[in-house]
């Protein structure tokens, strides 16, 4: 046996016991309990150490010293054990916490704009960047504004190009194009120069099929000034096409006829599906017809209040749904007003 005083021996035994118990504590709660049992305010080690007062005076320093060492040793062992157990526990929790990350997320109930609105906004944005602001005019128009002031006299063959919904009011009709807005804008702004875009719903008396509808959006553009040239028309519309359909996309201008422009043209862009090689979409021509345009006809300038010998202008018009159909590969124009959410939610 040791020659140490009995009190020291008791301490050593307690230490050995505590360390053995510590080894057995394998989770946070057991460690907590162990700490309370040995090192808590009423723990065995704490109580033993407090008994220093009961010892003979000469034994006290040694005992005290030993007791402190013991306490420190146990605290250190405890801390070490805590770290170990915590690491084990985290490890265990991580293993048990694995989830099936392939389960679907909680759906966010997102709203969307109608594809016509989305396309319209894109078009108007591009023109806004070029200084063209929005001017809107009415859907129900007079024959005068929809036709006569735009150089379509009554019974003129050009009227055959636009099958019209007439109303029971004489000379009141549903506009067949946004062009009446040209006259409204000119009469409002004359003699200032003009740069406007005119979006709006237009109506045609047509059978409703995959390719034709009775209503559709059009965006018309009008620039009037002292020095607006055919080459400007080409330049601006080419820029528009590059932004709308992609940089580098080829365009071509074909001579055409509209009563309210002269010279008149149609702009084609290289087919966006086959890149001009020829496919079903472009009817094997390599080109897609995008918009009609031209220099404002002198008669129309005059009707708007501008002297055609001093002013000149250009105008263009495009179908919004047609552009959306080309951009998104929509094969049936009836989708737009049928509002099947299975269609709308794809945008």
């Amino acid at each position: 046996m040791s020659d140490s005083p009995e009190s020291i021996e008791i301490l050593d035994r307690l230490a050995a016991e505590a360390l053995a118990e510590l080894e057995k504590a394998s989770d946070s709660q057991a460690l907590e309990r162990w700490h309370t049992t040995y090192l808590g305010r009423k723990g065995k080690v704490t109580l033993s150490v407090r008994r220093v007062g009961e010892l003979p005076k000469e034994e006290r320093p040694v005992f005290g010293q030993r007791a402190n060492q013991l306490k420190q040793r146990l605290e250190a062992a405890y801390e070490e054990r805590v770290q170990l157990v915590k690491a084990q526990e985290i490890e265990k929790a991580l293993v048990e916490g694995a989830i099936d990350v392939t389960l679907p997320g909680r759906p966010v109930l997102r709203g969307r704009l109608h594809p016509s609105t989305q396309t319209l906004r894109r078009i108007l944005q591009i023109w806004a960047d070029m200084g063209f602001q929005v001017y809107r005019s009415r859907d129900v128009e007079t024959d005068e504004y929809n036709f006569q002031l735009l150089n379509f006299p009554p019974y003129h063959p050009a009227r055959e190009m636009q099958d019209t919904f007439y109303t029971t009011q004489p000379d009141v009709l549903l506009r067949t194009h946004t062009s009446p807005g040209q006259i409204h804008a000119m009469r409002e702004y004359c003699p200032q120069p003009i740069r406007v875009v005119l979006p709006g719903m237009c109506y045609r008396y047509e059978q409703i099929t995959a390719r034709s509808e009775i209503q559709f959006h059009q965006v018309e553009g009008l620039a009037v000034g002292y020095n607006i040239r055919f080459t400007d028309l080409k330049g601006t519309l080419t820029d528009f096409a590059q932004r709308m359909f992609g940089a580098g996309r080829k365009t071509r201008f074909r001579a055409s006829y509209f009563p309210f422009t002269e010279p008149s043209a149609e702009m084609d862009v290289e087919c966006i599906l086959c890149n001009g090689k020829g496919c079903r979409l472009c009817k094997y021509t390599g080109w897609l017809e995008i918009l009609g345009c031209g220099m404002v006809h002198p008669t129309v300038l005059q009707n708007g209040g501008y002297n055609p010998n001093r002013y000149s202008g250009y105008a263009f018009g495009m179908g919004v749904e047609r552009i959306a159909m080309l951009r998104y590969g929509i094969e049936d124009i009836r989708y737009f007003w049928s509002n099947d959410l299975r269609f709308l939610e794809q945008f």
């Binding site: 120069p193 620039a223 002292y226 055919f230 080459t231 400007d232 080409k234 071509r252 201008f253 043209a265």
Partner: peptide, 14 residues
């Protein structure tokens, strides 16, 4: 039409 150059409007901004 294809033989005409593309230009930008030089007119005054309204």
């Amino acid at each position: 039409y294809d033989r005409f150059p593309n230009t930008q409007i030089e007119d005054v901004m309204p």
